[in-house]
Amino acid sequence: MKYDAYAIEDFLTEESFVNYCLGTPQEDVLFWKKIIKEQPELKERIDKARTLFFLLAVKVDPVEKQKELNKLKLVIEGMQNIAEPTTELPQRNFIGRTSWISIAAAILLCIGVYALFNKKEYGKEIQPYAAGAKSILLKTAYNERKTLTLSDGTTVTVNGSTELKLDDHYNQEKRVLWLNGEAYFEVAGNKDKPFIVVSGTTTTTALGTSFKINNYNNRAHTLVMLNSGKVSVGELVGQKVVDHVQLSPGEKVEVTPDKFAKSTFNLEEIDNWKNRKLVFSTASLKEIKSILKEIYGIEVRSKNQPKKPISFTGTFVNEGLSEVLNAIGFSNHFTYTIKDDIVTLDFDKK
């Protein structure tokens, strides 16, 4: 949609939005209410833009707001003559063209200052990744985990079959990383340098927090789980970050091509992931697949599945995928093959 990439000040350039703020005509009011209903991710920006509008128009009484805004528009566009009403009101001060130019300049200055204070939330620009002398490219093999500490003090735990990239500009004006796979981030706090992870077209922005992202190339979704602090999850539109939802600890969002689905989860899941702790309690095949996917970042498929329900009970801590599969396969009579990040279970035919 047109308004997805709008920064707060951009809304004030829309005549229909100004009318929405003024409450008339009804057609424009209904239009923006519909936008908010259909795109709830824009509500926070729209509310801030509306607040900015009234801050700028605080001394204009409701009866005169539309007329004064029309005057301002004419002055800004360089019109020479501003039509004044023929009805004279007692003790009314005449506002000349020079005064309106000053007002216009003041408003533009206010908009600029307001945009400056909000730049960490919206309007973030990200240049495409470019390898350089100081860039980092980390790749992990299947079933391999690595932990690294970045120049700003941020710690990243990278799961198997994952690629993590940083370019020469990391930790200058902002901290940008590119992720394909799965990783857990413990972000060093720095309010002046947003920490942004780009995974496909999904962006996750934080200042100081810890969260996990799962985004493998062969899957049509990205999963962001927040352990502490606060993050904004959005998308990359061109080179601009457009935030859609904010997460609090214990919340996650699954991003698919057509939606951002927000829900809650047990924080213990992240601790289990970090420690590679798997707990199965009479787990069904569906539950086994889900836990293996969560801990190892792999997709589990099966063939020749028996009619008798699968069940497994056991606990593993920091064990490799093969050790876990061997134990489950022994009691449930299957062998397995692994290709890239896909595991296929082949049950014995009886």
Rank of each mutant, 00 (worst) to 15 (best):
K2I: 11
D4C: 02
Y20E: 07
C21I: 09
G23Y: 10
E27K: 14
D28F: 03
V29Y: 09
F31L: 14
W32Y: 07
W32N: 05
I36N: 08
I36W: 00
P40A: 12
K43G: 03
L52I: 07
L56V: 15
P62L: 08
V63D: 12
K65F: 08
K67H: 11
K73N: 09
K73M: 06
M79W: 06
A83G: 03
E84Q: 15
E84I: 10
P85Q: 09
T86F: 12
L89T: 15
F94R: 13
F94A: 12
I95G: 06
R97V: 14
L109K: 00
Y114T: 12
Y114D: 11
A115Q: 15
N118P: 00
K119Y: 11
G123L: 10
Y129Q: 05
A130Y: 07
A141M: 11
Y142F: 09
N143L: 05
T149P: 02
T154P: 00
V156P: 01
N159E: 04
S161Y: 13
T162H: 02
E163D: 02
N171V: 01
N171W: 00
Q172K: 14
E173L: 06
E173M: 02
N180A: 10
N180L: 02
F185L: 07
A188R: 01
G189P: 05
K191R: 07
D192K: 04
F195K: 00
F195H: 00
S199L: 06
T201C: 00
T209W: 05
F211E: 01
I213D: 05
I213F: 07
N215Y: 13
N215H: 15
N217L: 09
N218D: 15
N218W: 03
N218V: 02
A220I: 03
H221V: 02
L223S: 08
V224N: 04
M225Y: 02
S228Y: 02
V233S: 10
V233N: 07
G234Y: 08
G234M: 10
Q239E: 15
Q239P: 00
K240A: 03
D243Y: 01
D243G: 14
V245R: 09
V245G: 08
L247N: 03
L247G: 07
V253C: 06
V255D: 08
K259G: 00
K259T: 11
F260G: 04
A261G: 00
K262S: 05
K262Q: 12
K262F: 02
S263C: 04
E268N: 13
I270H: 10
N272C: 10
N272H: 15
K274C: 05
N275K: 15
R276G: 08
K277G: 03
L278N: 01
F280M: 11
S281H: 13
S284I: 10
S284P: 07
L285H: 05
E287T: 14
L292C: 08
K293H: 14
S302C: 12
S302F: 08
K303S: 13
Q305F: 04
I310C: 09
I310P: 03
F316D: 02
V317T: 15
E319C: 08
L321Q: 06
V324A: 05
N326W: 00
A327L: 09
I328S: 09
G329R: 04
F330D: 06
S331D: 07
N332Q: 14
T335E: 13
D340K: 14
V343D: 08
L345N: 06
L345V: 07
K349H: 09
